[in-house]
Nucleic acid binder design. Structure first.
Length: 504
RNA sequence: GGCGGCGUGGCCGAGUGGCUGAGGCAGGGGUCUGCAAAAUCCCGUACAGCGGUUCAAUUCCGCUCGCCGCCUCCA
């Protein structure tokens, strides 16, 4: 069993063989730092985070490079809008991006190169391309001559003729072929510029990724990723300029592209006015829910975002949390007797093994996260069934297998980027309210600095007293009250149990 | 106009030339529970339509309809 990855370049699933043994070197196109990123952008980062984690699970060392495009028309426009310099714009949104990633729980890249810090490297490539006859200078602009590169169109699967057929761009007189693209742009008034052999100017968009990926990963690195919309022209042009420059191929061994996001079946765009910023979404929803939403669909398929689906994803996530809770609860509250009943745990042990096999098989098939998730959910069901069946007569042996199951769910979910069993961030306000309620119940005025668990235990023991006396009214009253505070109570054979529902 | 993709149960979403249609959410019924919750079990007449290939197609091929993406900045 080995990993197969769909390569956009060949339009096939291929066996994944790295350039260097046990090491994956990847480049994931990063943001143009002119704004906060939206949830569509986030899909790419979530997907490649998952891919990275899976490589590590397989035992690879991973080096991931992610660029910041910090010189670009959009940044220039933004600086005019906000009345601050381009540097200030890019700094602001670079920082915001890193914050967003941290809040999302996406692991940082190993290298974060910035375009403006690699002007030299870009100029070197441009000069090389001119020397080799792949690029030409027109009055301060430098263009890549598409007709000189025979492989042009191989990534997007189109010929130059097909691409020209439905041209919508006004053809620049300066270009030999309308598909020729700018490597270097002559400076206009008020724009950032750098000196160059061709005059003052700034780099074109595509050249930075070639310069930076070649610098940090070198020709023929393993994976280059990004959204599907980058296939043409961005990645197509990267291939052309890189392979022309070094007279070598391939530039990249595997091209991976994630599907795009729509919002309520519409393209998410400023003009439609339906942009949801990641940071706004994360104010209301947990990263696990967003990740589960994305990972429930294969990364190459399109996906439609709705808040209803976020509710569903939250509930799915909650199911895993409850299962883990179930294990922890029985582990701490159950009485495990020292009876030699080895046979009974075998079923669960097998299920754990089977889960991992299914998980790996799914992920090996071009990162089929929906199937990988289904394996985890199946294990969750097995665990719950096991607990249901055995909780009345637990033996020592059960402890071990339950812990194994818990660790497996935790571990495999973690490979997908989900962080389960994280401590909740409880509002201090809530603890204060619960304390107040407790004092109300016992009719006391005294200050007691109980923490969340302590105060809930106190309240619940009062409720247990009521239940013992079959004072159902009082017991239900307490339960209702707690629910108003957002705490749900469950009565179990091992005593009461509380939790905070995740879904709204 | 060119290139490419998609159309699976109430919803989302995997998957496969024949065997029991993964999983999640929602719904109905049962078990458990003082009640509830959680959990679990059972249930749901699917593969857009029409042709073709085949012993056999949801899965392969063709056409039709519907939807979408890219061809221009975009993850």
């Amino acid at each position: 069993m080995s990993l197969k990855i769909y390569n956009t370049l060949t339009r096939k699933k291929e066996d994944f063989i790295t350039r260097e043994k046990n090491q994956v070197q990847m480049y994931v196109c990063g943001p143009t730092v002119y704004n906060f990123i939206h949830i569509g952008n986030a899909r790419c980062y979530i997907v490649f985070d998952m891919i990275k984690r899976y490589f590590r699970y397989l035992g690879y060392k991973v080096k991931c490079v992610q660029n910041f495009t910090d010189v670009d028309d959009k940044i220039i426009n933004r600086s005019k809008e906000e009345g601050i310099s381009c540097e200030e714009v890019s700094e602001k949104y670079t920082r915001a991006f890193l914050e967003d990633m941290e809040n999302l729980g996406v692991e940082p890249a190993e290298v974060y190169p910035k375009a403006t810090e690699h002007i030299r490297e870009m100029q070197e490539i441009i000069a090389g391309l001119i020397n080799k006859g792949f690029a030409y200078v027109v009055d301060g602009d430098v263009y890549f001559e598409v007709d000189k590169f025979k492989g042009y169109g191989k990534l997007s699967g189109r010929t130059k003729e097909e691409m020209r057929a439905g041209e919508r761009v006004e053809v620049s007189e300066r270009k030999k072929n309308p598909l020729d693209f700018a490597l270097w742009k002559k400076a206009k008034e008020g724009e950032p510029w750098w000196d160059s052999p061709w005059g003052k100017g700034r780099p074109g968009w595509h050249i930075e990724c070639s310069a930076m990926s070649l610098k940090y990963l070198g020709m023929g690195f393993d994976i280059h990723g990004g959204g599907m919309d980058l296939i043409f022209p961005h990645h197509e042009n990267e291939i052309a300029q890189s392979e022309a420059y070094l007279s070598e191929e391939p530039f990249v061994r595997y091209w991976l592209h994630n599907g795009l996001l729509t919002f309520r079946e519409e393209k998410m765009a400023k003009s439609v006015g339906n942009i949801v910023l990641l940071r706004d979404l994360l104010k209301q929803w947990h990263p696990n829910a967003l990740k589960l939403f994305y990972l429930s669909t294969h990364y190459r398929s399109p996906i439609d975002f709705t808040f209803e689906k976020m509710v569903e994803a939250t509930k799915a996530w909650e199911r895993l949390e409850i299962t883990l809770d179930n294990i922890n609860f029985i582990l701490t509250r159950g009485r495990f007797e020292a009876l030699p009943e080895k046979e009974r745990t075998k079923g669960l042990e097998k299920a754990i093994k089977r889960t991992e096999d299914k998980f790996k098989k799914a992920m090996d098939d071009d990162f089929n996260t929906p199937r990988a998730l289904s394996a985890i959910f199946e294990l969750a069901r097995e665990v719950n069934t096991f607990i249901d069946e055995n909780q009345s007569r637990l033996v020592i042996e059960d402890k071990k297998v339950l812990k194994e199951a818990r660790d497996k769910i935790l571990n495999l979910s973690g490979v997908l980027g989900l962080k389960l069993m994280q401590p909740l961030s409880i509002l201090p306000d809530l603890v204060r309210k619960l304390r107040g309620y407790y004092l109300e119940l016992v009719g006391s005025e005294s200050e007691e600095s109980l923490n969340l668990e302590e105060v809930l235990d106190c309240i619940l023991s009062l409720r247990e007293e009521a239940r013992k006396e079959k004072d159902w009214e009082r017991a239900d009253q307490i339960r209702r009250r707690l629910k108003e505070f957002g705490v749900e109570i469950e009565d179990t054979p091992f005593g009461p149990r509380w939790r905070f529902p995740l879904a709204k």
